[in-house]
Design a protein around this nucleic acid. Structure first.
Lengths: 252, 252
DNA sequence: CCAATAGTGTCTTTGAGACAATATGAC
DNA sequence: GTCATATTGTCTCAAAGACACTATTGG
């Protein structure tokens, strides 16, 4: 960053200060500022289905339309300068879900800043992904008053119209977690504290929209056991009238 | 995005509008705005070494300190709302290098928005990665007046102090291209229009800071030939007094 | 015994890494 | 011929995909 933000009207600010031989020097014009927001794509897996939390907009524009939870970053230009953008994301997540900040996985997704994406004025939005465990997910809005709700990314979302460019943000988010699924441990964020191999596999299938061969999947899981990534937990879990499964937990 | 930006003093803006049962409703307080900038991490490979373009800061703070090229996004809150953030990145890239916008690979890296990262006031910076081919890279600042310069990421950068949080941004950028190297075609952006297998391998080695077995690397390359990713180009290239190598080019 | 899911094992293919031998052109 | 690099090929191992079989429970 080598910008010179326009702090006060009094300051004679120069816009930018990079390598400037070829740069057009601008007179001390004050650069107008955009609003900066955060939008959080909150995922969970319930009933072997990848779901996202949407909120119904209360004001114009897009009043009554479903949208990603989000809000403006709280900023000050003096003193402590307000909250960081990551902090803002955690705050919005917390407000949307009631979960205590820091209780689930949050990662920055992408920043959306095309001109015109908000009709009211220039808004640049830093989008985040949050992964909420099924336990927590089911607890959220157990029949809310209709202002926030889980939607299936496979059944409902494709047919919905979302506010602003939120459809694009959501698409980007789904692609991101799909891409990371096989090369990271994010799946464990979308599974209960203790889980069976089949439950973990269901989660993989929900995210990827494909099936995994149970036997090959188990082999991958064996490797994780060998590496000490997961450990057996006490108890068994029954599914129907069949043989019960062992219980596992992530080794933190 | 479901924020309500503070457009005018007259408007009764509500901060945010997510799922709000638990949200604290704020009176129509106007949210202060941050400045939003773009910083571009411009890479090239010269002499089998990964280099980054830095600019010497002309003003306070960090006057005289090397920093990433960057500047503020040009924004308006009425009319066309100004330039998009990607457009701003291309503009900064163009200003720093003299290259025509769109002539090289640009991808968003990450957005840095901790409070206090700029002592002058709240600045949120969207960082970008640009990859410049050696041909273009060598042409840039062929002995400039010292305000912009290529630095070796392996030799010089580790010992330098950079302005703001630019060291962190640069680290993130290097990690990113290292991570993408083996799963994408970005290496071809850091190689001349036509190249030999050895040159491509040198580029891989420069980025990853490791050696690749020439024979195994060639096998990977063979696969790319089979997939039609690369095609043989006319001519041969000599390196020393040894056997000349075939020339290849990326199949766009 | 039967139904249904849990768990184990085999065969094959693909790609990565280690390593040896041959080909070609400058000198 | 010699030197230096280009190019081809072999062997081994790790991991993924396809697929068959045994184990354990409820009924």
């Amino acid at each position: 960053m080598s910008h010179t933000p326009d702090m006060t009207q009094a300051e004679s600010a120069t816009i930018g200060s990079g390598p400037t031989k070829r740069r057009t020097r601008r007179s001390p014009t004050l650069q107008e500022k955009p609003s900066v927001g955060v939008d959080v794509v909150i995922f969970t897996v319930i009933d072997s289905d990848l779901k996202v939390l949407l909120a119904k907009r209360e004001g114009q524009p897009f009043k009554g339309v479903w949208s990603l939870p989000g809000g403006l970053v709280r900023v000050r230009n003096s003193g402590d300068q307000g909250e960081g953008i990551e902090q803002a994301a955690h705050r919005e997540l917390s407000e949307a879900t009631g979960l205590t900040p820091g209780s689930c996985f949050v990662e920055q997704l992408y920043t959306f800043g095309k001109a015109g994406r908000d009709p009211r004025g220039r808004v640049i939005s830093v989008a985040w992904i949050a992964l909420v465990s099924p336990d927590q997910g089911r607890a959220i809005h157990p029949g809310d008053q209709g202002d926030a709700q889980w939607f299936s990314t496979h059944e409902e979302i494709p047919w919905m119209r979302l506010a602003f460019d939120h459809a694009e943000i959501l698409d980007t988010a789904v692609e991101r977690i799909r891409g990371k699924l096989d090369h990271s441990n994010i799946a464990f964020e979308l599974v209960p504290e203790t889980f069976t191999v089949a439950e973990l596999r269901d989660t993989y299938e929900a995210i990827k929209s494909r099936t995994y061969d149970a036997r090959n999947f188990r082999r991958r899981f064996q490797r994780m056991i060998g590496e000490g990534v997961v450990t057996e937990a006490p108890g068994k879990r029954h599914r129907g009238k069949a043989r019960p499964a062992k219980i596992w937990r992530l080794q933190r």
